Each structure stands twice: as structure tokens, then as C-alpha cells.
Simulated assay, not measured.
Amino acid sequence: MLVALTIATAVAALVLAAWCGFAAYRDQPTKDWHFIGMAVVTFLAAVQLIVGIVRLVRGDKPEQGTTIFVSYLVGSFACIPAAGFMSLAERTRWGSVTVAAGGVVLAVLQVRLYDIWGG
């Protein structure tokens, strides 16, 4: 895995979490700007998914197993879109809290992906 991409995705997820957490603190739902931030983080996760699959196809093997690695890659990719969808269903401050929690979960998944790959 590319360490720089993993770090960039984790940092972007934490920035999104802080931004949406601040919106929740101010009693605001997610707004269009938050969804743009979610799109950026989702793009980074999609790039990571593609890079991970390409590395597997080229013959590189994760240290802790391919199945768990692919599962974490797919979970990382789906984390923020799922939180964004749930925030659309809950148009209160709790929608912002949901996206903030999704950002923290994505950052933790990035650390776990790094460990699974053998970092």
C-alpha cells in the first residue's frame, strides 16, 4: 500500500470529522459544503481501493491475508457514503454527528489497513 495515500485519507477523514463535529456543536445539520468534503474523502478512499486491488493483481500479498485486506478496503470505501446517506435521513445536528463519527471510523480503518498490509 502507499503509505502517503493512507495518511492522506486518514487526515482528510479526521478533518471532515472535526468540521462536521463543529457543525454539530453549533446545532447545524450537514450542508452542501459538508457533502463536498465527503466527496473528497470518498475519492481518496476510492483511489486507495483501486491501488489496493492493483497491488493484489500484480502479485503483492498483505501480511495478514487477502480476504481481510479486501474487506477493509471495501469497508473504507463505503464508510463515508453510508454516513452521508444517514445524515440525509436525519436533517438535524445528529446528521452532522453521524458524519463526524464516520470520519473517525474511516481514520481507524486506515490504521488497520496499514497494519494488515504489513506496515
Rank of each mutant, 00 (worst) to 15 (best):
V3T: 10
L5K: 07
L5D: 12
T6G: 03
A8G: 00
T9L: 05
T9D: 01
A10G: 08
V11R: 08
V11Y: 01
A13P: 00
V15Y: 00
V15D: 01
V15W: 00
L16Q: 00
A17Q: 05
A17S: 13
W19F: 02
W19P: 00
C20T: 15
C20L: 06
A23C: 02
A23I: 00
Y25D: 01
R26E: 06
R26H: 02
D27M: 01
D27S: 11
Q28H: 05
T30M: 08
T30G: 04
K31M: 04
K31Y: 00
D32S: 08
W33E: 09
F35V: 04
M38E: 12
M38N: 04
M38L: 11
A39N: 09
V40H: 04
T42K: 06
F43G: 15
F43E: 09
A45W: 01
A46S: 14
Q48R: 14
Q48Y: 04
Q48E: 13
L49C: 03
I50Q: 05
I50Y: 06
I50H: 02
V51K: 07
V51H: 04
V51M: 07
V51L: 07
G52V: 02
V54N: 09
V54L: 07
R55S: 13
L56K: 12
L56R: 08
L56C: 12
V57A: 14
R58K: 13
G59D: 08
D60H: 14
D60C: 04
K61C: 06
K61V: 13
K61P: 01
E63K: 15
Q64W: 07
Q64E: 14
G65F: 08
T66N: 12
T66H: 04
T67P: 01
T67Q: 10
I68K: 15
I68V: 15
F69N: 05
S71I: 05
S71P: 01
S71Q: 08
S71L: 10
Y72K: 09
Y72H: 14
Y72T: 08
L73G: 06
V74R: 05
V74Y: 02
G75N: 12
G75S: 13
S76D: 06
S76Y: 02
S76T: 08
S76V: 03
F77Q: 04
C79S: 13
C79D: 10
I80L: 11
P81D: 07
A82G: 15
A83T: 10
A83S: 15
A83W: 06
G84T: 07
M86W: 13
M86Y: 09
S87A: 15
S87I: 06
S87M: 09
L88H: 05
L88R: 13
L88D: 02
A89W: 13
A89I: 15
A89F: 14
E90I: 14
E90Q: 14
T92P: 02
T92Y: 03
R93I: 08
W94A: 12
W94S: 11
W94M: 14
G95C: 10
T98H: 07
T98A: 15
V99L: 12
A100W: 09
A100R: 08
A101Y: 11
G102V: 10
G103M: 11
V105P: 09
V105L: 15
V105F: 09
L106Q: 13
L109W: 08
Q110I: 01
Q110A: 12
R112H: 10
R112Q: 15
L113C: 07
Y114H: 14
D115Q: 14
I116E: 01
I116D: 01
I116Y: 02
W117H: 03
W117V: 03
W117S: 04
G118R: 11
G119N: 13
G119A: 13
